[in-house]
Design a protein around this nucleic acid. Structure first.
Length: 235
DNA sequence: AAATTTATCAACCGCGACCGA
DNA sequence: ATCGGTCGCGGTTGATAAATT
């Protein structure tokens, strides 16, 4: 046990992991499974704590991790879910297959925190009409929405001045409920709706800054059912 | 070109929750 | 019921790269 190792005066390795350590860890996790991290740490001979081993595996070695840049779509999802849930990084990560809570947390701190702050303080960016047109609002300015598309309703439809949760997030603009993907897609939606009661998202909302139009999550050149892939494999 | 500042991200830490003996 | 071991989460730190002066 790593703890014992420290008691016995064996100093634990810290800092950057090396390739050989990664290989060793992967081998032992494959053999022993993703648990008993202290046992894995000691059995492998890695002079690392169980915690460190778990962290390395969960964030870098685990299969199916998506490395590389976070896409615009993923960014929108993060912004949206952070608005709903706050710093619940692991919960947010579960909505982004292949991404880890640590990755999202870091991304938020370095890229999105300022952006979100700006949205709250005044400016508001929103994609409507299945991403085919962008709007940029300033606090209290509804004009961008009020001269929107005849088939897509008004600002109230998108951002909600009613208690209707679907309208409140603009979901009524899509035929979600009759889709073959209904179950997969409606899970996060239902969770979202459930969350509405927790955070009273639109309590007294007559402006846009506390609202984050849901269609903004839809990639530019795909339809909503293509997009459903993003939400696949969720817990 | 060198020094300094800022941004990024991997890794660590503390704490609370959970679980089995 | 309790206690120790383990796990997972969120906050923070620190090393390094990139940008700026």
């Amino acid at each position: 046990m790593a703890f014992k190792a420290t008691l016995q005066g064996e100093k634990l390795h810290r800092g950057t992991w090396h390739e050989e350590e990664d290989k060793l860890l992967s081998t032992f996790v494959t053999l022993m499974g993703e648990r008993r991290w202290d046992s894995i740490a000691s059995a492998s001979g890695l002079k690392r704590s169980g915690k460190s081993c778990r962290f390395r595996w969960m964030n870098y070695l685990r299969p199916n991790l998506k490395r590389g840049h976070i896409s615009i779509e993923e960014e929108q999802i993060i912004l949206r879910l952070h608005e709903l849930w706050g710093n619940k990084w692991s919960r947010i990560a579960r909505r982004l297959p292949g991404r880890t809570d640590n990755e999202i947390k870091n991304y938020w701190r370095t890229h999105l925190r300022k952006k979100a702050q700006e949205q709250h303080e005044g400016n508001f960016y929103c994609k409507l009409n299945n991403g085919k047109q962008d709007f940029f609002f300033q606090k209290g300015d509804m004009s961008g929405l009020n001269h929107n598309y005849e088939n897509h309703g008004t600002a109230e439809d998108f951002c909600g001045t009613t208690d209707d949760s679907f309208d409140a997030v603009g979901l009524s603009n899509f035929s979600l409920i009759s889709s073959p993907y209904e179950t997969q897609l409606s899970d996060p939606i239902l969770e979202f709706i459930k969350d509405q009661s927790e955070i009273k998202h639109h309590e007294g909302c007559n402006s846009l800054e506390s609202c984050f139009c849901y269609p903004a999550l839809i990639p530019d050149d795909s339809n909503i059912w293509d997009y459903a892939g993003f939400l696949w494999n969720m817990d």
